[in-house]
């Protein structure tokens, strides 16, 4: 399988990465080189094989559904580029 220029633009949009028209051909070549390399996986017979979901055979740990920490709003917004009264500020979403 190989990707065309439209697919590169669509994937970039899904990934929320702005690309210029100048970026597209190089990106397309690189993606196709990588996809060409991983193509060999299709020759492996995986019939009856379960996909790996956990690398160590252990049950997912669960914790009690309770509050363990909180009241740290000012810490949480401390590194944000733009905040007001402990809220993150973003460009207007709803007119």
């Amino acid at each position: 399988m190989s990707v065309d220029a439209d697919t590169v633009r669509r994937v970039a949009r899904l990934a929320r990465i702005a690309v210029t028209e100048d970026d597209v051909p190089a990106m397309q070549n690189e993606l196709n080189a990588i996809l060409g390399f991983v193509e060999q996986l299709s020759e492996v017979d995986v019939s009856g094989v379960e996909p790996m979901t956990s690398v160590t055979p252990m049950e997912m740990k669960k914790r009690v559904d309770g509050v363990t920490e909180g009241d740290r709003a000012s810490d949480i917004v401390a590194n944000a580029p733009l905040t007001e009264d402990n809220f993150f500020l973003v460009p207007k979403v709803v007119e």
Binding site: V8, L31, L35, V38, L41, V44, V46, E50
Partner: peptide, 26 residues
């Protein structure tokens, strides 16, 4: 990020991601 987005996108998930996770089991 682009490769990851592509292999997880609709229509390619089984051919790439699921296949890779099965190979990982092997």
């Amino acid at each position: 990020i682009m490769i990851g987005t592509y292999v997880l996108s609709a229509g390619y998930y089984d051919a790439y991601y699921l296949q890779a996770q099965k190979v990982r089991t092997l």
